[in-house]
Amino acid sequence: MSPSSDAQEYRDYGLESLRNASQSSLRTKLKIFTDVETPYAEFDTEDSPDSLFDEISPAATSSLPAMLHAPPIPGLFFTPSLLLPVQLADDVTHFCLDNYFNRPGVNQIMLFGVASSSNAGAPLSGLPPVLTTLLSTVSSLLEPTLPPEIHALLFPPNPTRARQAILNLYHPGEGIIPHVDLLRRFGDGIVGVSFGSSCVMEFARVDKAADDAAAPLQLFLPERSIIVLSGDARYAWTHGIEKRTADLVADAGVHRVVQRGVRLSITFRWLLPGADVVGQDD
């Protein structure tokens, strides 16, 4: 199939286009391409069953500035200065745009890497080489900063479970509603990587009391940054992205507005036993 004009624009203008592309020329109505997330318990999406993605909103920023450093949530690991190499980020971005987001309306792709039963220690098969390179690089970058048990959870030397890579494409003004990743499909330990644009991710307690009016904790995710959710951060807190075209960020006591561009996120998750059967009940 010939690539769409949007995909051609991406290739012509490269990663810089992701940062600065016009909303009017690149934005399409969101549709989920395949397997769908379901929010946790209180965040029901029966009225919008086919997507966690929010509708487009007017340009706006939050009234509360986002943090540059990880909020005090057990199991959440984030270092703002820990960034992917530019060339690798460029390679991953171009590969994904050329191969997965070259049709109008496609904003989410799910890929699976399966552990080899006959060759212990072999890389997961099923993921394209550029994503296995990404995983290897992320593992190396995170190893000095993560507790050893968390690094081993995310990057075991002999994986025995299937790993999923979920690719989401966001245009300015789009977001994803607060949710906990499916409890009966995915295990502990989630890695997220941002490409093309920054955004702010919000966190809120799952079991907050009805009278708890505390605002969600907000974390600024620069492009090429890496975030890890484990333990409480994975199970006891929701995470989401508000639908905005710009974010307010607190930087050294000064508040600044950061415009959003087109953002690609790649999230790696471990599938629970039997959950690699796509389409089964969640």
Rank of each mutant, 00 (worst) to 15 (best):
S2K: 15
S4D: 07
S4Q: 08
S5D: 12
S5H: 13
S5W: 07
D12N: 14
E16C: 08
R19C: 03
S22K: 09
Q23N: 13
S24K: 10
S24I: 08
R27C: 09
K29H: 13
K29N: 10
T34N: 15
T34A: 14
D35Y: 06
V36W: 04
E37R: 01
T45R: 03
E46D: 15
E46N: 11
P49L: 11
P49M: 13
D50M: 07
T61G: 12
T61S: 11
S62G: 12
L64C: 05
A66L: 02
L68S: 06
A70V: 06
P71W: 08
I73Y: 05
P74G: 12
L76I: 09
P85T: 02
V86R: 07
L88Q: 00
T93L: 02
F101P: 00
F101A: 03
F101V: 00
N102A: 10
P104C: 13
P104F: 12
V106E: 03
M110V: 13
F112C: 12
V114D: 02
S116F: 09
N119E: 14
N119S: 11
N119M: 10
A122W: 06
G126W: 02
L127D: 01
P128N: 05
T132P: 05
T132G: 02
T132M: 10
L135W: 01
T137M: 00
T137C: 04
S139F: 01
S140R: 10
T160P: 05
R163F: 06
E174V: 15
E174D: 15
G175M: 05
G175Y: 02
I177A: 02
P178Y: 00
L183P: 00
R184Y: 14
R185G: 07
R185P: 00
F186C: 12
G187Y: 08
V191Y: 01
G196T: 04
C199M: 11
V200H: 02
M201H: 07
K208F: 12
A209K: 15
A210K: 14
A213I: 07
A214L: 09
A215I: 08
Q218P: 05
F220D: 04
R224W: 00
I226D: 03
V228Q: 09
D232V: 03
R234Y: 04
W237P: 06
G240P: 03
K243Q: 15
D247M: 11
D251P: 04
A252Y: 07
V254P: 00
H255I: 04
Q259H: 14
R260T: 08
G261C: 09
I266Q: 01
R269G: 09
L271H: 03
L272N: 03
V277Q: 13
D282M: 07
